[in-house]
Design a protein around this nucleic acid. Structure first.
Length: 439
RNA sequence: GGGGGCGUGGUGUAGCGGUUUAACAUGCGGCCCUGUCAAGGCCGAGAUCGCGGGUUCAAAUCCCGUCGCUCCCGCCA
């Protein structure tokens, strides 16, 4: 018999069905047994009269919660049953995998263990409804982004994650032994995206792993995370990148809201709103004026930069003033930006770059890139970077590379912001940090 | 890397110098209950209070060290 998903049982009243799922609760009484079965789509009660089949009754009594079961029986409507008014009268049971008792923790209890403990038992923690929903949302979010890009003529790229030479700043690179030499894990697809521009791909995106050997202990950092990157050619300024990014996010979030909005409200108590475009924008200079007016004091050594507190303050300001969760901060000083960010023609101290903040958290850095080899070389030297390591990179810009720009966005951070999660550790399938390599 | 906080049965917490044979909830085991549904009732097992040292007549409780976790900062997505 074909399996019926629990959400579809209402259409099969009076019929024989087969369901498959986990035993969330067993209520074993004197004459009756009630099993609450959960599958990916919901919960249903299964009832069994013990005297009809004492052997089966005994088998049910021995089941541990969270056992994996295949159950056959008849679907009946029963108003007495609080769980959806539907019940299955059990006829046969196959124990696919009996769960040992006690479990390391009860995934469906009101009081959950610390996140760190749950991460040790992630495969049980992931069974919880909110975690199932989280990854349905992530899947839809990525599908929405791909949908936008494909409609707009982008190519999907897959750049290598093993590199031969440290490029952008060596400090946060993981090194590994690679046959007779040392290789490095990519800490960004940045240079490869730009190479694709030199290769004439014009518009590319990549969703893939990024590695950072940063011993950061915060609720929003990981040593391995999924980066969402895009790069486009023939632009006049970073503004075009910003337009693409806001359209991309609005499109993907709209899809998520349509598909999961009510479930997100019920499970996460978050009203997922589709952000209006264009997103609010402010220059760094304006950001400083706002912070001053709001009474936020930046440490003086932060000259031209923002700290996390300032980002939260700006997020709160924009939420109150414009009712918007996102804000672009533009025109960052060259001193705090990468050497490959293009400078403003009107003021070479500033870059044609932006950060996107979501609810006060840094989600994205983007910029128009410097595509003129001589200017790029001068900017690298100004930052005191070794030109030997950058030579191959700078060569991309010697043989007709179009003007271009792009962004990198943290998928986990976006999930955190959309669902209002306190830590990125629960926003990703398996967290990787300085002290966590398992499971 | 710098600073703060926490560390008590499987899990979540209470206790914060002597009335503690360490309490409560949940989970687990047993018994009871003719339909339960956040089930309920009774009984039971389960913790040398992270680890090491010190102070004291007396330490889960105070101090020092150490390990683990966590938050903030630096840095970033």
């Amino acid at each position: 018999m074909e399996r019926t998903l629990i959400k579809d049982l209402g259409k099969k009243i009076g019929e024989q069905v087969k369901i498959q799922g986990w035993l969330q609760t067993l209520r074993d009484q004197k004459s009756m047994q009630f099993l609450i079965i959960r599958d990916r789509t919901g919960l249903v009660q299964v009832a069994h009269w013990k005297k009809g089949n004492p052997e089966l009754a005994e088998q049910i009594s021995s089941l541990g919660t969270e056992s994996a079961l295949t159950i056959s029986g008849k679907v009946v409507a029963n108003e007495v049953v609080k769980l959806g008014g539907i019940e299955i009268q059990l006829e046969s049971l196959r124990v696919d995998n009996n769960a040992e008792s006690p479990l390391p923790f009860e995934p469906f209890s009101d009081e959950l263990p610390d996140l760190d403990y749950r991460l040790d038992w992630r495969y049980l923690d992931l069974r919880r409804e909110r975690n199932q929903l989280m990854f349905e949302v992530e899947t839809t979010l990525e599908a929405g982004m791909r949908d936008y890009w494909l409609k707009n003529g982008f190519l999907e790229m897959h750049s290598p994650k093993i590199m031969g030479a440290p490029s952008e700043g060596g400090a946060e690179l993981f090194s590994l032994s690679y046959f007779e030499r040392t290789a490095y894990l990519a800490q960004s697809p940045q240079f490869y995206k730009q190479m694709a521009m030199a290769a004439g791909w014009e518009k590319v995106f990549e969703i893939g792993p990024v590695f950072r050997a940063d011993p950061s202990f915060t609720s929003r950092h990981m040593t391995e995370f999924t980066g969402v990157d895009a790069e486009i050619s023939w632009i006049e300024s970073h503004e075009e990148v910003m337009v693409m990014l806001e359209e991309l996010l609005a499109h993907a979030i709209k899809l998520v809201a349509e598909k999961h909005g009510s479930e997100i409200k019920r499970v996460f108590d978050v009203e997922l709103t589709v952000p209006s475009t264009p997103f609010p924008r402010m220059t760094m200079k304006e950001a400083y004026e706002i912070l001053k007016a709001e009474g936020y004091k930046l440490p003086p050594e932060r000259k031209g930069d923002l700290d996390p507190g300032a980002e939260r303050a700006l997020g709160a300001y924009v939420k109150e003033k414009y009712g918007h969760d996102f804000v672009y901060v533009t025109d960052w000083p060259a001193t705090v930006r990468a050497f490959y960010h293009m400078r403003l023609e009107s003021d070479p101290k500033l870059t044609k770059s932006f950060d996107l903040l979501g609810k006060g958290i840094e989600l994205t850095t983007g910029a128009q890139r410097e595509h003129r080899a001589d200017v790029l070389t001068a900017q690298a030297q100004e930052k005191g970077l070794g030109l030997e390591l950058l030579q191959n990179y700078i060569n991309y810009f010697r043989y007709g590379c179009p003007p271009h720009g792009g962004f990198g966005l943290g998928l986990g951070r976006l999930m955190m912001v959309l669902l209002g999660l306190p830590s990125i550790r629960e926003a990703v399938y398996l967290f990787r940090g300085p002290n966590r390599l398992e499971p």
